[in-house]
């Protein structure tokens, strides 16, 4: 695998966005949607995606301002630049939506996801799992004589890579939070 393999559409690897906005390239975009934390707001956002045939790759949501009752929804979606523009506009016209940012094109951003991995096994496989977890800076948050639960934080790609390595070592269960993301800089 070449070290220069850059994921299309993701700018977390580069400060430059060199893509033609009219090109029919399908890319992955991370959208940050700030909403009023009111009943049904998540259903509105999800309903918009399913009703208009857009993809959701991952979605996280939590209240980020308790006094102001604001929640932040981070959606990773795929589409051509025109489709993603349309998704942004459609989200923007929902009444409880305050702001929509496409973190993928609006400049550099950081993306992190948290995952829990349950790996069962004994002997050499168990030692190897622990060694790899150390390399990936995953923490052991539960252990028995036959299993570990690892906690890992990173980009979705890092978590995918860790999952690939754990699979032959006795991977039993995975829980992932989906991506949380913020723009870099002040």
């Amino acid at each position: 695998m070449s070290a220069l393999k850059i994921k299309k559409g993701a700018s977390s690897h580069s400060a430059y966005d060199l893509r033609d906005p009219n090109a029919e390239v399908i890319g992955s975009h991370t959208l940050a949607v700030l909403v009023d934390n009111e009943a049904g707001v998540l259903a509105r956002v999800i309903g918009l995606f399913s009703g208009r045939g857009y993809n959701i790759e991952s979605l996280t949501v939590a209240e980020v301002d308790h006094e102001g009752h604001r929640s932040r929804i981070t959606v990773v979606t795929t589409g051509t630049a025109a489709v993603v523009e349309q998704i942004k506009a459609q989200l923007g016209r929902l009444v409880p939506v305050h702001d929509v940012h496409d973190l993928t094109v609006e400049g550099p951003s950081v993306e992190r996801e948290l995952a829990l991995f349950k790996v069962a096994g004994t002997g050499e496989k168990r030692v190897e799992a622990l060694r790899l977890a150390d390399i990936f800076r995953a923490n052991v948050v539960d252990s028995t004589l036959e299993s570990f639960v690892f906690e890992i934080t990173g980009t979705p790609e890092k978590i995918d890579a860790f999952a690939e390595l754990m699979r032959p070592l006795g991977l039993v269960d995975v829980a992932r939070t989906g991506v949380a993301a913020l723009a870099r800089g002040a």
Partner: peptide
């Protein structure tokens, strides 16, 4: 008046 109408169907 609706930004989502613009560039939805025709560029």
């Amino acid at each position: 008046i609706d930004p989502s109408s613009i560039n939805k169907v025709i560029h």
